[in-house]
Write a protein that binds this DNA or RNA. Structure first.
Lengths: 336, 336
DNA sequence: ATGAAAGCGCTAACAG
DNA sequence: CTGTTAGCGCTTTCAT
């Protein structure tokens, strides 16, 4: 069913039908009724592809993430999708595994579809193919993962990761812990470097020495973190608390602790970051710094919408905006 | 950059450029080189929207799920997306919260975009708007959630849920459990009715009485299952094992058990279904029936691709196919 | 207030 | 082997 057929049925021209459809122009009340009836009768739905082709806008947005299997993404994705949908935008889901080749291929596919913008959560290192998007005129927002150089240059949404590290560590100190370890994420990512910086600063501000041998690194794969935790705990003078730079890492650490027969929090307190849905379900329930992932998604989506609309109106992208989200300390039993 | 410009640069007509691009027709080797060079020079990428409009095919697929936050969907989604991407298809992610209004709105949006097909994991009850899709000629596959009436009528992908219930229960019996409870999902869903049927059958086959008061129901929201578990365990003659109809339910049940001070598996064994990524991480690690969710996604995607290709060739949809996946019992510490 | 027609970028039938 | 042209379905200017 297309415009032409509806027009024929109503006995008017296609332009008239088009006009009543998008209401931009005056149409005689009577003809409007006739057209409306024809539309109803035929159950007509406009062809979005044709509209996009004509208008140069697809009402379609690309969400690029390393993997939806990573526990932090479902909530974030949900916030993004809900918000975008309410604004008439549909989202293409692109899992990249941080494989630059996949990212590039997806970017090409999206460009071919005249995508309206990109929300990207996977930028690490150079990634010129991602950063270049803005220069090419595409609305772009970087969520959670980006570098210092991107701030002020590209729209970003993230939590204050220094505060995250600082507050978590400070809380551990205040509850009497003396030997606080850090289960750190990859320092290729600013967000983890910042959390680490917060950790060190809190230690320093409270007169504790920061011992590098109390920092273990989740280098991914093969349960490395699990074994490092076991190793860490079997040393002389083992930690009495572990700040885990993300909830998934905390789960691995707790798993290792359990297997060692250690009690949480009596022997060692554990605190995470994210507040993923499982955090309240594990034993003991995980004390964590909540990242408000859903809201982060909402913020990212809104930032993108703002760019799309601004560009539509002014032909250029607006000045980049930086959004920093609050965090909350969620007290549960694993620390406290 | 469009065909016309490339053609002008190469000094040929648009059709020649088009021809070298999709290689369907012979082009003089020399002209081909000239065109290829022009394409490279201009960094030309075809416009997928225009192609779709012309070809009546968008290379785009709709994935409709209740919510990506539900722990079983990330893996499934990943399998779907990986497979679809390898076949040149891009996926629209549609979270519906099982809200029929949202579902319908999404379906309209997708139709307007000339979507090539639907993968739906949210069908419960009537849902005529979903089932109607096939009659309207859209390739459609129902994953995991569907009813008896859909089998043979619509393409389906699922595990043998009767076996799931049977095997889980039988395992509990074989390991010496005597009073086996069931933490059941909503019986609005065939998949849970089947798991329940398997549970009852295994009980019967082994000479156990099936006591209805040992079946609790996850009616969603408000921690109902948590409190029901506590209630269940505080009765006379409490169960010594609980078969949970899904891993997320098992997590809630274990949480309640922990809070009751009960030991798993010494006091009560727990077994789940799904093998979501967290299953191996909780304490104690969860024994579960693996659903091979990633493979389920792969199978669903392949089923859809088969339909799309068949329809492209023959103009009609192929006879519906039913795919049933194997399961495996994953032994961990929560039972056994 | 309405219609005719151009054109978004592409493919394919038809001519040559 | 290559070019011309007619659409795919829509929006919008320009006439009327």
């Amino acid at each position: 069913m297309n415009l032409k057929q509806v027009a024929a049925l109503a006995g008017v021209s296609v332009s008239t039908v088009s006009r009543v459809l998008n209401g931009k122009s005056y149409v005689n009340a009577e003809t409007r009724e006739i057209v409306l009836k024809a539309i109803r009768q035929t159950n007509y739905q406009p062809n979005a592809l044709a509209q996009s082709l004509k208008m140069g806008r697809s009402n379609t947005v690309c969400l690029m993430i390393p993997s939806i299997e990573n526990m932090m993404f479902p909530k974030l994705t949900r916030g993004i999708e809900d918000t975008l949908r309410r604004n008439g935008l549909t989202v293409f889901l692109c899992n990249t595994d941080e494989d630059a080749a996949v990212e590039k291929a997806y970017i090409e596919t999206m460009k071919m579809r005249w995508i309206d913008g990109f929300i990207v959560c996977s930028i690490a290192g150079e990634a010129a193919h991602i950063r270049g998007l803005r220069e090419e005129g595409y609305p772009l927002v970087l969520v959670n993962r980006f570098e210092e150089r991107d701030i002020g240059t590209i729209d970003t949404v993230a939590t204050d990761n220094f505060q995250v590290g600082y507050n978590a560590t400070r809380y551990l100190i205040r509850t009497g812990r003396k030997r606080i370890a850090l289960a750190q994420g990859t320092e290729d990512l600013l967000l983890y470097r910042e959390r680490g910086r917060g950790y060190r600063q809190a230690l320093e501000d409270n007169g504790f020495e920061c011992r590098e041998d109390r920092i273990i690194h989740d280098i991914g794969g093969n349960n490395s973190l699990y074994y490092q935790t076991k190793d860490l705990m079997s040393r002389q003078d083992p930690p009495d608390a572990i700040f885990c730079a993300s909830d998934p890492k905390a789960f691995v650490v707790m798993h290792a602790l359990h297997d060692l027969g250690l009690r949480i929090p009596e022997d060692v307190a554990v605190i995470g970051v994210d507040d993923v849905s499982m955090a309240s379900m594990v034993e003991p329930p995980l004390t964590t710094i909540s990242q408000h992932l859903y809201e982060m998604g909402v913020a990212a989506a809104n930032s993108l919408i703002r760019q799309i609309e601004y560009k539509e109106k002014n032909g250029v992208l607006p000045k980049p905006e930086r959004i920093i989200l609050n965090t909350d300390l969620i007290l549960r039993r694993s620390a406290g």
